Computed example of a mutant assay.
Amino acid sequence: MKKTGIITIHSDLNYGAALQAYALNQILRIKGYDSQIINYIKIPNHPRVYPFPKNIAYKLMNMPRLYRYRKFLKSSVTAKEWHSVDELMNGFNEPFDILISGSDQVWNPTCGGLIDKLNPVYYLAFANKNKYKKVAYASSLGSYKFNEEEKPYIKKWLGEYEHLSTRETTGSEHLKEILGTEVKVVLDPTLLLNEGEWMKAAAPVRIKDKYILVYYIDEISECVEYARKIADKTGWKVAMMTNTARRFPGVDINIPFCGPAQFLWLFTNARYVVTNSFHGTAFAVNFNKDFISVIKRNSPQRAQTLLNNVGLPERLLTDISQINRLGDHVDFTQANIKLEALRKDSINYLINAIEN
């Protein structure tokens, strides 16, 4: 049995990061590989900094969420931890056959934990190319473009890979310009698992009411406004995951300090989903939930690409008046066929990259 090691962003308290890491590792295990996530604990990109004694209060409040994240990934990560770039770069000698740089924005320097510098860890630069086969699965740049100083490092590090793929067409085209080689576009790992496979990792949340789930990134009020429109029509409650015990105006049910397992349960049991997150959109599509994807104006490409690929572009709204043009329910018949074809193609790429 081949042993695969995944390097990805998994230690941040971010639902998308944790869920994509779990998904890639899990699909490899389902396909028969002995797979683990290399437990590199990077510096958070945007750590919250509070003065004393607020910093103590924040840490205490955040402990339940931290515990839930660590519990969710405990069986997926290596027991050994690495806490710095130097630890990995100096003498990595773990018993893996294949190393995979996983998804999320691992190739975006603004997300790598080194303050806008390239983090060589996420390009597998710590691994001897003569000992480890290197593969990229959906490794993303986000909207980042490498500058002239960075390009020689990109050519060197990615030149040691035997198979390259990324998550967005724009990233694929940018890398092709630098490397002179094709870079395949594949699905985000969260879409490689179906709802039944995801539910094995879910944990229940106590909610007795029918609810519309709000999952937001940054812009809260716009998502809540959309959800209230649906609530006024249906009589359902507006529920929202938050990192505070304080209830946001317009929200009926506040659900604080959830981990990824609770996130999954809330999605599968929601009557409706309103989100401006790519991963929120991805789970709504994957779980066949009636949903609205509110455009994230600073980075709409990922949600647009996904919805175009599965034939549901009308679910991405740029103005609240557009709600009136939507039907009461989403017809997922064709979307499921298209998603399954994309899933099969992406898994085939992954297995072929490992085996050939």
Rank of each mutant, 00 (worst) to 15 (best):
K2D: 00
G5M: 14
I6L: 15
D12A: 07
N25Y: 01
K31D: 05
G32R: 06
G32N: 04
I38N: 00
P44M: 03
N62Q: 09
N62C: 04
M63C: 12
P64T: 13
R65M: 00
R65K: 15
L66D: 02
L66I: 10
R70G: 00
K74A: 07
N93F: 06
I98A: 03
S101Y: 06
G102P: 08
T110S: 05
D116A: 09
K117H: 14
K117M: 12
L118Q: 14
N119A: 14
P120F: 08
K134G: 00
G142Q: 05
S143N: 09
W157G: 09
W157Q: 05
L158E: 03
L158V: 07
R167C: 00
E168F: 06
G171D: 00
E182Y: 06
V183C: 01
K184Q: 11
V185C: 05
N194H: 04
A201K: 11
V205G: 13
V205C: 13
R206I: 13
E219F: 08
S221F: 02
T234N: 12
W236M: 12
M240K: 10
T242E: 12
R247G: 01
I253M: 10
N254I: 12
F257Y: 14
P260F: 03
L264F: 00
Y272D: 13
N276I: 01
S277T: 03
H279R: 00
N288E: 12
D290C: 06
F291E: 03
A303T: 09
A303P: 08
L307G: 03
N308H: 12
E314F: 06
D319M: 02
I320C: 15
S321T: 13
D328Q: 11
F332L: 09
F332Q: 07
R343G: 03
R343T: 09
K344R: 02
K344G: 11
S346M: 14
A353M: 11
